[in-house]
Every structure is written in structure tokens, then in C-alpha cells.
Design a protein around this nucleic acid. Structure first.
Lengths: 202, 202
DNA sequence: CCTTTTTCATAATGGCCATTACTAAACCAC
DNA sequence: GTGGTTTAGTAATGGCCATTATGAAAAAGG
């Protein structure tokens, strides 16, 4: 029993996600969030908890709604294709929405006040998880002869992630999608190969 | 005539620089700044103006005190050496001070509230200036035959900058200097060459 | 020594922040 | 239809924010 909720919780979360994406965790105020969601403050609190809880749910939603290309990439047959898929899709995602350029996980909280420490750490862990998956995929590639035995899979994974992070910074600075693709292309141009070499784009 | 200033303005600026480096523009409060500088609020205002003016002076000081390796790099004989010098020195600077990892120019303001827009733009312009210098240096390298005619100097400059930005994000996340150096090494491993090839590290 | 000028430190100001009482309205069970 | 329960919206609360008024202290000129 009781009164029904009058707003769509998922739409409100999507709206909050966009605000956090654009302004980051600390840069987003409840005035911004309620305006974007079209919902009053207490409704957001009752539906999501406090600001930190709302941000964490927005992060989870970002993962499932926008980062599907990462598990996609991991299933591609060669390490080169994995890296290319990630880099080109990152270039696309970082420039696809002009009102929220860059990456949610980078814009969210890089530096900030001490109160934002838990959120910052959550984003660090989130990126670390992706990087670990990538490293494991590259280790598999070594076992399959797709990468040379001398390749350092952790360094390669860190490198691919670094380039995506750098592209996110550049996208937030207004770089065009074409420019980011050129960065991705350069990053891929010296990819180590095992027995077979690859070419083409994702 | 009049009373003498009792604190060292340069030391206060250095202290503010460290706070901004660690917490970014919006994450740093005057409580943080005055504590670090050992100076009361009105003294900071009278010496530097408001928070934005203080930040801009901190940025200028960061440039002259910590980024000397960039003009240094630009004078090296080959494009490869230029890139290597920048990447390895960035890896060093981003991890040199455990209390302020990453890069002032990235931590300072990536995303934030609308009030921080001018500061964000100032940092974007700052990075763009460095990237333009790098691009010009690479164009010279093409003229000198140090880079192939087919090389795209703007893409190469953007790539080198992207890797430094990515390393800054990773350093802020706690990555070790060795890991960042491995990223730098991977970034340099496929550098295009003209007639001569290079090797070694900076 | 006294006046003028500058700096110092305390403490105030107004605004925005996240969070939440509180009241009225809407719904379900009975 | 009525009682119990959940939501909606207004408006309050306490805290921190950048900024500055105020007055004491200190230095230099006359």
C-alpha cells in the first residue's frame, strides 16, 4: 500500500549520470541534479540515498550502458584487435555527446577535497578492474602466440589504459573525434606482434 | 613607508601550489591554503588577489619550477629524444612527490562546477601551448629528415601529450614510477623514424 | 615623538552546500 | 469510505565556502 512513485527512477539516474559526467562528483550540486532529473531533492534521497550512493549507482549504470565495448573487445581474437577496439570506441564515446565530453570515470573525481576520497578511490578501483581484465587478456594472447613471449602484459595494459585516459582529458578539452582517432592510430602503430601481424581499424 | 610584510610571498605561493596540485582548484579551500602557507586569509588576498588569481600564479610558478624539462626536450637533436625526454621526465615528476602525485595541470581542473570554467579553460590553453610547441618541433624534424615526410606532426604531438596525461591520471591513482616508465617505453617503442633510428632512454 | 601608511589577525558576512523536518496529497487494504 | 502508509514539495537547518570589514600593531618620515 501507500502512494506510488511518480517519476521514473531509471530516468532520474540517467539524468544524474549525465550531470556527474559533465561536472564530476564534487562539481555537481543537488541544484544541478534535481533540475536535470526533474525531481525534487527528497525524492532523490529516498530513491538513491545520499550523494555518494547516487554517484556509485550512476557509475554502475555508466558501466552497463556505455562501456559494453570493453567486454566486447576482450572477446576479439587477437590482442591487437582488443586494443584497437578499446581505443577507437573510447575515442568515439569521449566525443559522442557534446554536452558531456570525456569519460565519466575520469571526470568524476581525479583530485578534490578530502571528503571526496571514497569516491575517488571507487573510480580508481573501477579503472584498476578494467586494466586487470586487459592484462589477463594479454597474458592469454602470449600463451596463444599472439603476443611475443617477451611482451610485458601489465605494461601493455597500462599503456592502453593510459592512452584512453589521455584521450579522455583531451576530449574534455574539446579535441575532435578525428584527433582522438589519430592518437589511437599512433598508439596502435607499434604494437608488438607474435607470429602474425594485423592491420585495419575497429 | 608602512609596515613590512612578515611572510615570504614566494614560499606562500609554493605552499599554495602544493595544495592546488594535490586537491585541484575547487577541492582546495582557503582553510587548506592558509594552513599550508602559514599565513592568514587576508594576507593571501592582499598578496595574490582572489582564489582564481592565486591559482593562475601557482600555475605560472609550476611551469617555471617543474616543467623546465619541456624547453629542454625541445632542444634535443632528434624527435625521438624530444619525446623520450618528455615522457620519462613526466613519469618522474608525476611520482616524485608522494604528497602530490600526478600533474598540476591535470589535477587542477578537469571537470567541475560552472564557476570554475575560467580556470579549466586556462589549463586547457596551457596544455595546448605545450602541444603546439611540440607539433612545431616535429614539423622541424620532418624538414630535417628526422621524421618521415608521411608523419603527421599534430597527431604525434597529441599522442605524446595523451600519454603524459594518461600517466598523470595513473600517477594520481598511485601507480609506481616504474610502471609509468614502462608505459613511456611502450609509447616510444614504435616511433616513426626517418633515415636514422634511435635507441636508449632519456 | 607623532603622523601616516602598510600589514596583521580576528571575526563577521552572505551565499551555497548536502541533508532533512514537516505537511499535504495519493494510494491500498479493509 | 476510512485508516494506515508511502510519496511529493516546501522550506528549514547547520556547516563550510570565498571574501572582506574592522581595528591593533609595526614601520618610516618629519
Amino acid at each position: 500500500m501507500g502512494r506510488h512513485r511518480e517519476f521514473d527512477v531509471e530516468k532520474a539516474l540517467d539524468a544524474a549520470l549525465c550531470v556527474f559526467w559533465r561536472k564530476g562528483y564534487e562539481g555537481a550540486s543537488y541544484a544541478d541534479l534535481t533540475e536535470a532529473a526533474g525531481v525534487e531533492r527528497p525524492a532523490l534521497y529516498s530513491a538513491f540515498g545520499n550523494k555518494e550512493a547516487l554517484f556509485r549507482q550512476a557509475l554502475a549504470r555508466y558501466d552497463e550502458r556505455y562501456l559494453g565495448y570493453i567486454p566486447e573487445a576482450l572477446q576479439l581474437p587477437t590482442a591487437w584487435e582488443v586494443a584497437a577496439h578499446i581505443l577507437y570506441n573510447a575515442a568515439d564515446l569521449n566525443t559522442r555527446y557534446p554536452d558531456r565530453t570525456g569519460c565519466f570515470g575520469i571526470n568524476g573525481a581525479l583530485a578534490g577535497s578530502d571528503e571526496a576520497e571514497p569516491v575517488r578511490q571507487a573510480l580508481i578501483d573501477f579503472r584498476a578492474a578494467a586494466q586487470a581484465q586487459l592484462r589477463e587478456r594479454f597474458e592469454r594472447a602470449k600463451a596463444e602466440g599472439d603476443l611475443p613471449e617477451t611482451a610485458k602484459s601489465d605494461a601493455l595494459a597500462a599503456f592502453v589504459m593510459a592512452v584512453t585516459h589521455g584521450m579522455a582529458v583531451q576530449a574534455k578539452a574539446g579535441f575532435s573525434r578525428a584527433m582522438l582517432e589519430a592518437v589511437a592510430e599512433q598508439a596502435l602503430s607499434t604494437w608488438p606482434t607474435g607470429s602474425s601481424t594485423s592491420s585495419g581499424t575497429s
